[in-house]
């Protein structure tokens, strides 16, 4: 083969192999590792199957935080203004976990429709609202408004 051509083949082969590996890995693992955000309304409406890993979030309902008397288990509710969902977490909550604070939890729904969280995130800024939570609140408000208008007419 002509050396120039051989080199070009060499290059193309490398590229094809590289891109092939990349695409293969991407396709395989993106499907496994993305976690969809679900609002409390969606969860309450039963749109979320039990046992699927999701992220859920909202504002921590005041007075809903209950700690186990032994161990580190804690149960609390989050709301998007329209519906509430209970979350159980066994571990240390982040510094900015407070009632009224927006949080996001990663976990699975159990058969009592309690989210068994493996991770609870609250951002390190007292003025910060996780964007998903903000959207969920706005959506719930909008829907609420619509429902009200419908009722009025």
């Amino acid at each position: 083969m002509h050396p120039q051509r051989k080199k070009r083949l060499h290059l193309i082969l490398f590229l094809v192999v590289g891109v092939g590996i990349a695409v293969g890995l991407l396709a395989y693992s993106l499907s496994q590792n993305i976690n969809l955000f679900q609002t409390p309304t969606q969860i309450a409406a039963g749109e979320v199957p039990v046992g699927q890993t999701i992220r859920a979030g909202g504002l921590v309902v005041a007075g809903s935080v209950e700690r186990d008397s032994d161990g580190l288990g804690v149960t609390f509710k989050v709301t998007d203004g329209a519906a509430e969902v209970s979350i159980f977490y066994d571990g240390i909550l982040p510094d900015l976990f407070r009632e009224g604070q927006g949080i996001v939890a990663l976990g699975k729904l159990d058969d009592k429709r309690v989210l068994q969280a493996s991770e609870v995130l609250a951002k390190h800024d007292e003025n910060y609202m996780p964007p998903e939570v903000q959207d969920a609140l706005e959506q719930a408000h909008k829907d609420g408004k619509q429902a009200m208008t419908e009722k009025a007419y």
Binding site: A62, G100, N127, M129
Partner: peptide, 14 residues
């Protein structure tokens, strides 16, 4: 102090 009213008002921050 608890931000309850703030929650109802949809306050992000002061």
């Amino acid at each position: 102090p608890e931000g309850k009213l703030g929650l109802d008002l949809g306050v992000y921050g002061a």
